[in-house]
Design a protein around this nucleic acid. Structure first.
Lengths: 243, 243
DNA sequence: ATTTCAAAGTGTTATTTGTACACAATGCTG
DNA sequence: CAGCATTGTGTACAAATAACACTTTGAAAT
């Protein structure tokens, strides 16, 4: 049964469609800034540009958005396809729209920031086009990807002081030294060991596993886990890392 | 003179263009969440939806992006066209991409947050389609605009504690009471008057104009200006409003 | 003129948080 | 079993925050 109202609705939707179709369209990509932590350095996962024009340059992991795909899903898809990992921390950071940022014409890209544990990620798909680069020294990036990286890095520095993101970059069990090394690498400054410990213990989100490091040539440190559940449940304030 | 190298370059660019052209395209809009402050309330400037389908709903100020326009410029254009104002605070907040967020088909929108002084803005263009609404009570918004508003409001709450944005919402000269009312309205909580003053004076960015309020039925307060120059020059830390 | 009112303006104290700093305990190595 | 490197811990001082009350001022009402 088709009522007048339904007919009218359909007409209005057709109008809306006509309006939308009268405007220019732009190809959309997502680019993922995938951070990892290894050898006490913050790393970013890059791929050799697949554009012949940029054949000596490194590129963020990205792809064109599929039709009717919400962009968060596009970004998860890129991660899955490239790293084989599924439950990775991911967050939208910023959209880049300079008309000439892509040599093939206007392409708008939405940058996502992602954090993963390098070791856990088995690199099944780690062909020789993919490499981890030190964030501090990487040069020669394709497109405007260096600008995107810088924005995401700045975003991360700010974000990690407000939320417990860092644990996504560490193994499930970690020592306090590893945790501090991570913070020092990301924030690019030294912190006092005693105050660092005090701060984290005061937050009360670290679970003592009862285990110890076993591959160090000195007194081994305790291993902890981050209590994601408690953090999620209590919504207790993450008191911020300021040092 | 055309060298081989130039020819090759042109070939590569053509390839790149072909690649880009093989992907789907999406219409892009910008939507501006324009905040104002009036009657001790945070307001947002909305327009009656121009879509017949949403004729009883309110819409953010937005427009489709022009060809080859960087989106920041699109947003400034929207502001200029709608409010007649040119030097308005504006910042990109987030991109929204749900495939069904627009009834006329997929439209991606980039949300911008903007702060302006309601009184200063002469509303030359203030036809009766435009209205200031209380952020706390507004309902019946078109598209996913309520979601966008909420994200921008949350963004503002966070941002105003880290940067001196609030002054964009006030007249050039303002009393401390007005400033505090602004913070209380945005952060939605009461603050201690003495500590508030102490904090702002300690930052040392308030210029005493020597003038006083003159339209109040009680002891008039001093009027201050925010020292944008000093703030910009010194990059001195904005110590944050926590109360 | 005097009183009343409402908000401006001001300081102190207690508490919490941040910072600086040093020494004993442990487990591995040779 | 001595030496080494790193873990683990506590205290004192400084700075920031939070709580709190009284005096001053100018306009309005009487």
């Amino acid at each position: 049964m088709t009522t007048d109202l339904q007919l009218k609705q359909e007409g209005l939707i057709k109008d809306a469609r006509k309006l939308v179709e009268s405007y220019p369209r732009v190809p959309i990509t997502v680019d993922c800034v995938i951070f990892g932590f290894d050898e006490n350095e913050l790393k970013v996962l890059l791929i050799r540009s697949d554009l012949e024009l940029f054949k000596d340059k490194w590129s963020l992991l990205g792809d064109f958005a599929d039709d009717n795909e919400i962009l968060d899903d596009s970004a998860y898809r890129v991660l899955r396809e490239r790293t084989g990992m599924d439950d990775v921390y991911l967050e939208q950071v910023k959209t880049f729209s300079k008309p000439n940022r892509h040599p093939g014409g206007r392409v708008l890209t939405v940058a996502y920031c992602s954090l993963l544990n390098i070791e856990h990620h088995q690199l099944k798909k780690m062909d020789n086009e993919l490499h981890w680069h030190s964030v501090k020294t990487i040069k020669d990036m394709a497109f405007d990807h260096h600008e995107i990286l810088n924005e995401c890095y700045a975003w991360l520095q700010k974000r990690i002081q407000e939320h417990p993101l860092g644990f996504n970059l560490l193994p499930e069990k970690f020592s306090l030294r590893e945790l501090q090394n991570l913070y020092e690498a990301i924030l690019d400054r030294k912190m006092d060991r005693r105050n660092f410990r005090k701060k984290f213990f005061a937050m009360d989100f670290l679970i003592d596993t009862g285990l110890y490091e076993d591959d160090v040539p000195h007194r081994p440190g305790k291993l902890y886990q981050f209590d994601f559940k408690k953090y999620g449940d209590t919504k207790k304030k993450w008191s911020g890392i300021d040092f």
